[in-house]
Design a protein around this nucleic acid. Structure first.
Lengths: 202, 202
DNA sequence: CACGTGACATACCGGGGAGTATGAAATCAC
DNA sequence: GTGATTTCATACTCCCCGGTATGTCACGTG
């Protein structure tokens, strides 16, 4: 038989269950018992791997949320041979919009949810979330700057400003879609954003 | 001496204290005891005026949040003799940005906060919040349409799409400012939004 | 002024939450 | 193989929070 103790596997299962429950109910309303019931592991195991609920939340941000942000929103910007960031941004949005429909209009963006809930309450969360937002803006800004060098983006555009607006539009679109329980506001908003992106052409 | 019983005054104090605590901690983390301690009234009074915590939250949205949204963001769009909605929108943003600085980057937008936290959890909140978002979009869209008729807005622009993007950008800017605990992202974002608005000129 | 009702105050309850103490089983070090 | 350490399980504890039961005082009404 295989080994009975698989610590890293156990840790990962707890993390992923926590991610799901937090995504659904928010961090404060996420019950440890719910998370544990979902995984089948017990409280003893959880408190062996994590010092407490807060640390578990930090780990969710540090490992899962960060990783999803990277995979879904950041990496596509730096795709091989990409020299048209405006097209890459539009394509990334389109991909995420079609791939994760239910998560968007039912649960919203995990990063945005956590940001709104926890930023003013807990400095640890705030710093971690701010770091992710900063990374997002920087990657967008750098991609746009590369586009300026390659001639696909207007050289006069303020790339930092544009990056901030793009992130805000995406987060705001998530919020409206979640409240409406419909993808319609998201689609409208992204159409408007695309029009804005077109305005950044040379 | 003045009257000892002032029911509507008491109700209002409870409502406003609840608004403050909810704005700071979110609805779920807002303790009734905190709210009551802040007002000086007791639990008996509170449960006399409101059936429970949820009803209190609904009342906060229905009366206070709705009213603030109207006063700060909607009414300025329909100012007397206003036929340049793009200027009115830019001015409204500027006014709110300078008037309520600490609330923005420390606590965020009350509507946005509640939307992110409560929309997926409670249908009552969701409907109320969605109604406010819809009203916001509609007022923006109508203002833009009026601008099209008066010639200050490009007749080819999709006003619904633009309204949704404007709301999203504002909400997203709030979120980033709150996480950064700084007005910088808000300013960047609004500058970008202004540039987008300029693109809607004929 | 009596009476009924509205407007509060006080004290308490039940439940669910995070966290802990302790122990057993598995794995590792030597 | 044996002691030490890691990994997990069970059974609690404590506390806070929303909610309730009940009592008291003020105020309008006849």
């Amino acid at each position: 038989m295989s080994r009975a103790y698989r610590p890293d596997e156990t840790r990962r299962r707890i993390l992923e269950a926590a991610y799901g429950v937090i995504h659904r109910h928010g961090f404060q309303a996420a019950g440890l018992n719910d998370i544990l019931a979902l995984t089948g592991v017990t409280k003893g195991a959880m408190y062996h791997h994590f010092p407490g609920k807060t640390a578990l939340g930090y780990a969710v941000v540090d490992e899962l949320v960060k990783s999803y942000l990277e995979d879904w929103w950041l990496a596509p910007l730096d795709a091989e041979g990409e020299d048209d960031p405006l097209a890459a941004i539009a394509r990334t949005i389109q991909d995420n919009m079609t791939d994760r429909v239910p998560a968007i209009h039912l649960l919203g963006c995990p990063l945005n949810n956590l940001a709104q809930e926890m930023s003013p309450l807990d400095g640890g969360f705030r710093q971690r979330i701010e770091e992710l937002y900063r990374a997002w803006r920087r990657r967008l800004s750098r991609a746009l700057t590369r586009g300026q060098h390659s001639g696909s983006v207007n050289a006069a555009a303020d790339t930092d400003e544009a990056a901030t607006l793009i992130v805000a539009a995406i987060q705001g679109a998530f919020g409206q879609a979640k409240s409406a329980q419909s993808m319609a506001p998201f689609h409208d908003c992204m159409a408007g954003l695309n029009r804005y992106l077109m305005g950044l052409r040379p």
